[in-house]
Amino acid sequence: MLRKPQYIALIVIALTGLILLSLSEAVASRVKLGVTSLFLPLFGATETTQAAARRAGNLMVPRSDLIRELEQLRAEKQKLEFTLAQTQEAGRENERLRRLAGLSTRPGWKLKPARVIARDPANWWRTVFIDLGSKDGVRVDLPVVTPEGLAGRVSAVGTSRSQVVLLGDQTCRVAGMVRETAENGVVIPYPQDPSIVTLTYLSRGSAVKPGQTITTSGLELKPGHHVLTSGLGGVFPAGIRIGEIVDVRSDGFGLYQSARVRLAVNLNALEHVWVVAQ
């Protein structure tokens, strides 16, 4: 049998738990971000340690390696300058054509670099914390990317920290598109493997016969096809890489197709990300 203090303790913890659980989402989010402030020394220590390790590493690199790398980077820079000039010309041409066609101009991206400072301790969620907050202009639902592709979206914002929900989490759904066939679908989690997501609600891809009304691209989805954001959901801009198709299967009693997509980004090894402010 429980003794009296134990009963009181149980009542206290149950009441506290219930009060915390009944907080509204906005208040709970604010409390959560407040509690994370207790771990500020840890974030500072991690940054200092990493900087010290980098400095120590820099001291140990031989001068000849640095010179060789510098030459490679110079060559790469020149190549990128040519590519940039071509891209800028193509952009200007695109702008002129859009104006002639009466289409609105597409706003450019503003990328804000951020560092991953904490990860979700629970094995069943996929979120991280970054060191940018509302004071840096970060808002809820802004896309988060890496050079390899889409990583996720901002789900909660504090003054100097934000929570990012990653691709593959059940609360992060993305409107996706297969680049080769222009098929649209929705990216949902694939629970068995964190490096894979499912692109679902794709049309069946049946071959188009002459005289038939074309409602789909009619092209077959194949492994290796690239999946990008379609921009249809209104959260993610179009054209961000998500991954490559691994395999395709018929789903929903044959009504639509689903494709397993291997993510372009290794979400377990995220260290630096960019927040896309449109």
Partner: peptide, 20 residues
């Protein structure tokens, strides 16, 4: 519990109840 939930997508307080 609260510290764990603050860094997680868990509802706040759920880990406290489980730990207690």
């Amino acid at each position: 519990g609260v510290a764990i939930d603050a860094f997680s997508a868990n509802p706040l307080g759920i880990s406290s109840l489980a730990l207690a």
